[in-house]
């Protein structure tokens, strides 16, 4: 709990003892995802070591770290994309809205509908722009054509792509530029109305202008979604995130408010990373 106190700016000492239960409830309500004692193995290799952290509702969190530190694997444990990796094993809990997503009663399909994901490479399907977004609705059994058309338009609008593609909705998605494709992927990810968005280095392969557009999008999306971004770009993380975490060799070195993280890192290794010594 100590961590939560530090990061939430809620000083337990100032709260009346009678109200303490309420306060704890409030904090609980605000937590979207809580990761408890998460260990992840790939074959014999212990990739993630005893990760403990939480993500607050409607916040942007950035996971930083050098290549190969396990940050992408960590992100993929949050929507169980690692299930398909042969030889992987997981211990510990990931609580989404208080429910363990590795529990027995969890429907993985519903989980992934609720936790959207955007990948490093823009990966639209080889279909039309319209169908790329409609796919997410169709796989969940929605057949109402009017609803689909409205939702597609809305998602494109949220992703800031509508004006650019209005006239070519029925053209192949590959006719778009890289930055547009990535925004299409974001539109596709929000089509299923998720509450969490996972982004795996969403701007790694984009030019500066497209990167700026997507960062603006992320800042706007905070109102609707809890956003978790994996990145190795320190400047970006500082600009857009509320919370930042630092992974090194599969361990979570530090996780705190971005202000503290970038100006007063507690750990020497975090400081080294921020000042580009890795």
């Amino acid at each position: 709990m100590a961590e939560i106190d530090n990061n939430n700016n809620i000083n337990i000492n100032n709260i009346d003892k009678n109200n303490i239960d309420n306060a704890v409830d409030n904090i609980k309500e605000e937590i979207k995802i809580e990761v408890k004692n998460l260990n992840f193995y790939y074959g014999d290799y212990h990739l993630l070591k005893d990760i403990n952290l939480f993500f607050k509702k409607n916040s942007v969190c950035t996971i930083l770290g050098p290549s190969g530190c396990g940050k992408s694997s960590f992100l993929r444990t949050l929507n169980r994309m690692n299930d398909y990796t042969e030889g992987s094993k997981l211990k510990g809990e990931v609580l989404l809205d208080g429910k363990n997503i590795y529990g027995k009663s969890i429907d993985v399909v519903e989980l992934r509908r609720n936790v959207g994901m955007v990948f490093q490479n823009p990966n639209p399907f080889p279909k039309t722009i319209f169908e790329n977004i409609a796919f997410g609705l169709k796989i969940h059994g929605i057949k109402n054509k009017q609803f689909i058309a409205e939702r597609v338009e809305k998602c494109l609008k949220y992703a800031g792509l509508l004006d650019e593609v209005k006239d070519k909705l029925h053209k192949n998605a590959f006719s778009l530029s890289g930055g547009q494709q990535q925004r299409l992927c974001i539109a596709r990810a929000i089509a299923t109305n998720p509450s969490v968005l996972l982004m795996d280095e969403p701007t790694a392969y984009l030019d500066p202008a497209s990167t700026a557009t997507i960062l603006d999008l992320i800042a706007n999306f905070k109102k609707f979604y809890t956003i978790i971004i994996v990145s190795h770009n320190i400047q970006q993380a500082g600009r857009i995130s509320d919370y930042s975490g630092f992974f090194l060799n599969g361990e979570l070195i530090e996780f705190s408010k971005s202000g503290d993280f970038f100006t007063r890192p507690k750990d020497k290794r975090t400081e080294n990373f921020i000042t580009n010594r890795f």
Partner: peptide, 18 residues
Amino acid sequence: IPASYIEGALAMGATKWQ
């Protein structure tokens, strides 16, 4: 076929068959 296609579909909640 790039693995990213199937990953993209799975991440949206598609079953493997879908």
